[in-house]
Every structure is written in structure tokens, then in C-alpha cells.
Design a protein around this nucleic acid. Structure first.
Lengths: 184, 184
DNA sequence: GACTCCTTGTAGCAATTGCTACATGGTATC
DNA sequence: GATACCATGTAGCAATTGCTACAAGGAGTC
């Protein structure tokens, strides 16, 4: 691997941490370069442009998220929707995953604004979510799997969104209340 | 009312439409001024700074949203959580309200980034949501009203977030599937 | 008519943005 | 040892950002 490729990898790694820590708040080229410990000039040597930087970093973050989701709830034993929601909610509102979900909400908003490269990233991550749910969902024959999967994702993402807005510790109570609302 | 105040009102009205149509994508001072049909110089004569412009416009939009929510589901007859979610979901995913919810998601993300004046706006709108749910929620004595209200808001906001990400028409199926997941 | 205040336009500034031109030291290849 | 390419720094450019200084017309007041 060339020096350039090695540096590229190191930069991606550092910037993944940066984005998870600060969201999309500090993502100018110079700010990214500083966070990665390189000059902005070199950032554009390792990557074609800013969009490629963000795409590479977000791909890394999405991969990490995917791994953790797979570890947290393996796909061996399908769960009924209510149980899947409960377990996913408990996991994604946990201290370690909150920053992922927070970043995810920001990325969705950036995609809504049409800001490159986020629309493509959102499509990709969303497809990953759908697949993750689909492979863990125990649903009767004839039920709307895609609709149910979308609903489950919506509930999980909604928890993250409200979590962002609330300075106090409402997440556990919210998750508990949600659990009570679900049909077993 | 002075000319200035009258213009201020007209600008707020036009910019509310602009934000609902385009989200936060075109919100530089010059872009806002163009959308409002005034010069950027005058925009800063009517308002102290950009944050005040956005705060005033968002207050208008929030007021409008509040009115529509109140009209759609009056607070006379409290509803059980599942039914409240169903009706709120049907309303907020409707063609007229989607742009409100879409803007709301963008505003939450901007607040997460700490961008003035959005954190304050989010706190205000969120409090409005909580109150709206609270005054329509039929819940047994001793239940966690605040937690349940937060959960209901999370579900509604989650639908909006997923709706933004999906180019196809998943919203109705998602809402239907969600309805099936709820305990009556 | 002088004075003052409200309203509006022109011009521009300092900072930040994404990105590029150019030079240069090193390393590898022939 | 000449040549070519990789890696990196310096400097800067054009565009956009939020915001401001200054002037001037116009309307009312004394």
C-alpha cells in the first residue's frame, strides 16, 4: 500500500471519530484537515474533493454501525415486531450508540437539503437498515414486510430524534412507555 | 403600524412559505432576501441579524403548525395512545403536513449542530408538541404521561424522518403497519 | 426653510468556503 | 547520475458568507 493509501485510511479513521463526536457541525475542509491531523492541501491530495472525503468517512461509520447492529441482535432467531423494536430501541438509545443515531439524523437532514454526498449515503444506509430488520423479523405469512420494516425503522429513528432534542434523561422513560404501547 | 413593521410582517409571511417549500437549503441572507422580494440590506433593517430573521419565520411556521394540529385533532375527547398515534400519523404524513414535518427534521438537525437560533426554537416547538399530546392523551392513573407523550412524539417524528428518506410512496404502508403494531 | 428621523440604496469589508497553481525535496528506476 | 514520479508545503484565488459604513431621498415638525 502506498503512503498515500495508508494516510488515506488513517485520515478516514480519525475523521470517523470526529464526525461521531461532533456531528456535521465542523466539516469545512480546513476543520476536517485539522481534525485528521493533516493540512487541507493534503486532504485534497488523498481525496478528490470534499464530497469524497465525507463519503469515505460516512461509509466507514456506516460499516461500523452495521457491525454493531449485527452483533447486538444476531439474525439467527427472528423476533416478533414488538420484541425487535424493544431490543433495537434499548440498544440504539444506549450511551454508545446515541452518537451514531444523532449523526444519522443530521445526515438525513443534509440529504433532504440535497447536499452531496448525503443523498446517496442515506439511500445506502437506509437499505442496510431495511435489510437488517428484514432478516430479523418474524412476521406472519401475507403481512407487509416492507411496510412493517419501515415502521420499525421509523420508531427507532424517532426515538433518536426526540433524544437529540431533550436535554434531560427522557430516553429510558420514552423507551419504557413505547414498549407498553406495542402489541405483543 | 410603521412601514417597517408592515414590511417585517410581509417578509415573515413570504419566508414562511419559502422555508416550507425549500427547507433550510436556501437560507443565506441574500437568498432569503430574494425569496422575500427585498434587498439583503433591507432584511437587516427589518431584523437585527440573520438569527432573528429565522427565529421570526420559524415562530410563524410553528404557530401555523400548532393551529393545524389543534384543528385536526381537537382536545375535547382524550384518546387512548394507540388511537392518538394513528390519527396523528395519518395527519402528519398527509400531503399538506409533510413539508412541515420535513422542515421540522431539518430544524432538529440544525439545533443538534448548535446553530442559532434553532436550539431555542426546537425547545419551544417540542414543548408545544408535548403539551398537544398531553391534552389529548387518555392514560390510566399512575402511568408515565411524560414518557408516553415523548414516545408518541418519537413515533410521529420517526415516520416523518423515514418519509424524507424514501422516494417511493412507503408512507401509507408504513402507517398501516405501525397501526398493527400498537396495543389497543 | 432648517432640522430631524424614517426609509432605502450603493458599496464594500473581513472571514470563510472549496479548490488550485506552483515549487520543491525526496525516492525509485533506468 | 539523469529522469520521473510521489509526497508535501506555500500561497493564493474566486465565490459566498454575515454584516456595516455612508449617503441620500422624503416626510414630518418647529
Amino acid at each position: 500500500m502506498s503512503i498515500r493509501d495508508a494516510q488515506r485510511e488513517a485520515v478516514i479513521e480519525r475523521l470517523a471519530g470526529h464526525l461521531l463526536a461532533h456531528g456535521l457541525a465542523r466539516t469545512s475542509l480546513r476543520q476536517l484537515a485539522q481534525a485528521a491531523g493533516v493540512s487541507d492541501r493534503m486532504l485534497l491530495y488523498y481525496f478528490a474533493d470534499k464530497a469524497e472525503v465525507l463519503a469515505a468517512v460516512m461509509a466507514r461509520v456506516a460499516g461500523e454501525l452495521s457491525i454493531r447492529l449485527a452483533e447486538a441482535i444476531p439474525d439467527g432467531a427472528p423476533l416478533k415486531p414488538a420484541e425487535l423494536v424493544r431490543r433495537a430501541a434499548a440498544f440504539t438509545t444506549g450511551p454508545e450508540m446515541r452518537r451514531f443515531m444523532r449523526l444519522w439524523v443530521e445526515v438525513v437532514a443534509a440529504a433532504a437539503r440535497g447536499e452531496a454526498p448525503f443523498p446517496a449515503i442515506v439511500a445506502q444506509v437506509m437499505a442496510g437498515f431495511r435489510h437488517w430488520v428484514d432478516t430479523r423479523l418474524d412476521l406472519p405469512e401475507g403481512a407487509d414486510r416492507a411496510g412493517t420494516a419501515a415502521a420499525i425503522i421509523a420508531v427507532i429513528d424517532g426515538l433518536a430524534l426526540v433524544d437529540i432534542c431533550s436535554e434531560d434523561e427522557i430516553a429510558p422513560r420514552m423507551a419504557a412507555a413505547l414498549s407498553g404501547l406495542l402489541e405483543d
